[in-house]
Amino acid sequence: MSPTPYLVLSVILFTIGGAGVLLRRNALVAFMSVELMLNAANLAFVAFARMHGNLDGQIVAFFVMVVAAAEVVVGLAIIVTIFRTRRSASVDDASLLKL
């Protein structure tokens, strides 16, 4: 089995996700883009695990999912709070943390 198509798909997804994080102002979209990048990485892990015929990559993929789930919980809570206080979900508006 050749991993190339999976890796190509993974790179495409990662690039879309990265571009989303860098370019979109909406915090929710940026957040979703982060998820996309994580899942692109997962896909690469799983593809390599399949190629090598062991379970290491699969285990790491599970870890990534758990961490991603936890991150969503915390991140969404922060975004909701910011939205409530500032009436905006734009990441550029929340640029107060500087000298």
Partner: peptide, 17 residues
């Protein structure tokens, strides 16, 4: 050096990338 700290998350992310 302080000027680099803009507060814009997206520019930090770009730096990270």
């Amino acid at each position: 050096l302080r000027r680099w700290q803009t507060g814009f998350v997206r520019s930090y992310a770009l730096t990270m990338f």
